[in-house]
Design a protein around this nucleic acid. Structure first.
Length: 268
DNA sequence: CTTTCAGCCTGACGGC
DNA sequence: TGCCGTCAGGCTGAAA
């Protein structure tokens, strides 16, 4: 599923192939995504030059001459570059033909994603916290914003107002590396432990982006699905299996309606 | 203000 | 073989 590293990987994979080209044609086959695809999108973007592509949180932004497209991959979305006469697969909902012959296909079985056009900014981006891989995100920030908060630390670090782009997988892994129980009250964790946690969040995201390099080639070539993070996972999806550090069985609980796996011996 | 929770959607999987 | 229930997940917005 697309987390921040995969969105970043997608961006790096497609950017060099289509930045600077012009939109020849955009076709919407099924526009009922998380929010309906912007009405009249094909007519709006036709003929506009794609100036640049950026990422904010898990959103991809395509900057065109007269505005920008905000794309989210939701839970099951993916973008890939294909030859324009490649046959469409089931759940290929949108495609964008560029002036250099490249075709960008959006595939999303669960349709939790979005494609929204705006010529004056996207309100969804206005109240987001800092990017995790910048100096604006630190243990000090986690410590200060968590004082008097009763929420468990795992949903706390997954809150987009605190820091963006930390999904269930990487929250679980960073907490394991930090030796912190996911259900510990956010307001009762020391500055020192938050500094450790912030460092591990950055490490785990950076590592996943590096490993995404393999996925990147697949995306561009239109082969296979990403499977790069499986080996590195210590706790996510491993409830009941032995802990990689102490061999005791990993515990599984639910926090904020999300499954949370941890080691009750290694994490306190 | 904080916290909780339903809803959006399909595919995979287990039980019968 | 198929049917049915459950789960997975990010994000929003309403309710408590």
């Amino acid at each position: 599923m697309p987390e921040l590293p995969e969105v970043e990987t997608t961006l790096r994979g497609i950017e060099p192939h289509i930045a600077g080209t012009e939109v020849e044609q955009l076709r919407v086959f099924n526009g009922s995504l998380r929010w309906p695809v912007t009405e009249g999108l094909s007519e709006i973007v036709k003929g506009q030059r794609l100036l640049s592509l950026t990422r904010r949180a898990k959103y991809l932004l395509l900057h065109l001459e007269r505005g920008s497209m905000m794309i989210h991959l939701g839970m099951s979305g993916s973008l890939r570059l294909v030859d324009k006469n490649t046959e469409r697969r089931k759940h290929d909902h949108i495609e964008m033909h560029m002036s250099n012959g490249k075709c960008l296909r959006y595939h999303d079985p669960r349709r939790f994603g979005c494609w929204l056009w705006s010529d004056n900014g996207h309100p969804q981006l206005d109240h987001l916290g800092p990017e995790p891989l910048t100096d604006d995100f630190s243990g000090k920030r986690l410590f200060e914003l968590s004082r008097k908060r009763k929420v468990a630390v795992k949903p706390f670090i997954m809150d987009n107002k605190i820091v963006v782009g930390v999904g269930n997988i990487y929250a679980s892994e960073a907490l394991f590396r930090s030796g912190i129980r996911p259900d510990r009250e956010a307001g009762r964790i020391s500055l020192q432990r938050y500094e450790l946690l912030a460092g591990h969040i950055k490490d785990v995201l950076r590592l996943a982006i590096e490993q995404g390099g393999t996925t990147l080639r697949d995306f561009v070539n239109g082969n296979g699905e990403p499977g790069y993070f499986q080996q590195t996972l210590m706790v996510y999806g491993r409830g009941g299996q032995p802990c990689g550090q102490c061999d005791k069985p990993l515990s599984e609980i639910r926090l904020g309606q999300r499954s949370s796996v941890f080691c009750c011996h290694c994490q306190r």
